[in-house]
Design a protein around this nucleic acid. Structure first.
Lengths: 204, 204
DNA sequence: TCAATAAGTGCAACAACTTAATTTTTGAAG
DNA sequence: CTTCAAAAATTAAGTTGTTGCACTTATTGA
């Protein structure tokens, strides 16, 4: 689940270099911010594309150059999340196991986004209460697990279709979700990944 | 995966009684048939709603009274499928285990639809090659597993959220899918459900 | 027979999205 | 600094899925 906030820290997001790319990124961000604000204020279905474009002071065509469909406005930095997730596996320190890398990623990136962000709950509610967004998020989640499963297969040398890869990918993305309901998410995540780590090392 | 063909046999579908309901069913079928024919001929995205309505000789308003969204035209009898699936579990003969009931249902209903229907492959290809339909089918599939999981929980007396129910539901719907790739689907299904049956009896 | 109800119609409208032609902005070469 | 090609944004005019509304027609049950 992507965080709705603006990237302020110099995180792992590819810092735009030229003025051109910086401006483009700024426009994109202005659109996403305006959209999220309006959606949270009045609900996803009550806000039209034109209105968002007006609020961000761009034309609707420009809006669609940045976001292919309306739903994508809500899951703005989703593609970045997936990139970082795959990077966490592919570029993990030598000697670190794949589940360990995933745990680290879950603890740093995902938990940090969740509890530093005050609007996170509101965001989650928005998605949960809007059918169109629920469906979109669900399919997004499936694409992420598929991509992660493939990356795991490549990194571990297992066959691309091996169900173990799919299962690990599935659990690794499900664990943080389940942990939010827990009173101590940090601990819940750690223990869940302990389980995965043991199972993984036994099976590979 | 639902079969695209018209119901001709007196299957478990609730036979319409009054003239009114019969007519209604007839229009619905006319629309679905026209839609599928056009989609197979020219592709999902190349056929508009208005064209389908014309082909079925109804107004677009009427079309949407029968099918809430365009995608639903393709998965016409999906809701019936789900009903029959749940019924197979809930109304199984006394003494029959849940996995056994699911196997029977897979063997009769689902396999029968698949290899009796010449257009089945074309239908599958249509869905697989159209992103909108892939996504829709995926979400449909998830709703089915959720519904099945709940039915299994009720029938077995396990807690509603028990992961075992979700897992059995998942595998029971996945098995026939995987079996189509096999050279002898009937045998593949039977063996897959043997596995589930043993696991189930051990765990409950 | 008659009134209630449900199915179907025609049309206009809206919102999401596309396309094409045009203008502005920008990075960099001369 | 000027010039120029490409990227980004705009304007305007569609197309398409989907809905609302006012209305007709057919079926049903009393």
């Amino acid at each position: 689940m992507p965080s709705p906030t603006t990237d302020t820290a110099t995180g792992p997001s590819p810092a735009p270099v030229g003025r051109r790319e910086r401006k483009k990124a700024a426009t994109r961000q202005a659109i996403a911010d305006a959209a999220l604000r309006l959606f949270l204020e009045r609900g996803y279905d009550e806000v039209g594309i034109r209105e968002i474009a007006d609020a961000a002071d761009v034309s609707t065509t420009t809006l669609f150059k940045h976001f292919p469909v309306k739903e994508a406005l809500v899951f703005d930095e989703d593609s970045g999340q997936e990139t970082r997730l795959l990077a966490a596996v592919r570029e993990r320190p030598k000697g670190q196991s794949i589940p360990a890398a995933l745990r680290e990623h879950a603890l740093t990136t995902r938990l940090a986004a969740a509890d530093s962000d005050a609007g996170f709950t509101a965001f989650t509610n928005l998605v949960a209460s809007t059918p169109a967004l629920r469906d979109y998020a669900q399919n997004m989640w499936l694409r992420h697990t598929a991509a992660l499963a493939q990356a795991i297969a490549e990194e571990s040398g297992l066959a691309a279709g091996d169900p173990i890869c799919a299962a690990l990918a599935h659990f690794a993305l499900e664990a943080p979700r389940a942990a939010y309901a827990h009173d101590n998410p940090r601990k819940a995540i750690t223990r869940a990944f302990d389980l995965l780590e043991h199972g993984w090392s036994a099976l590979t």
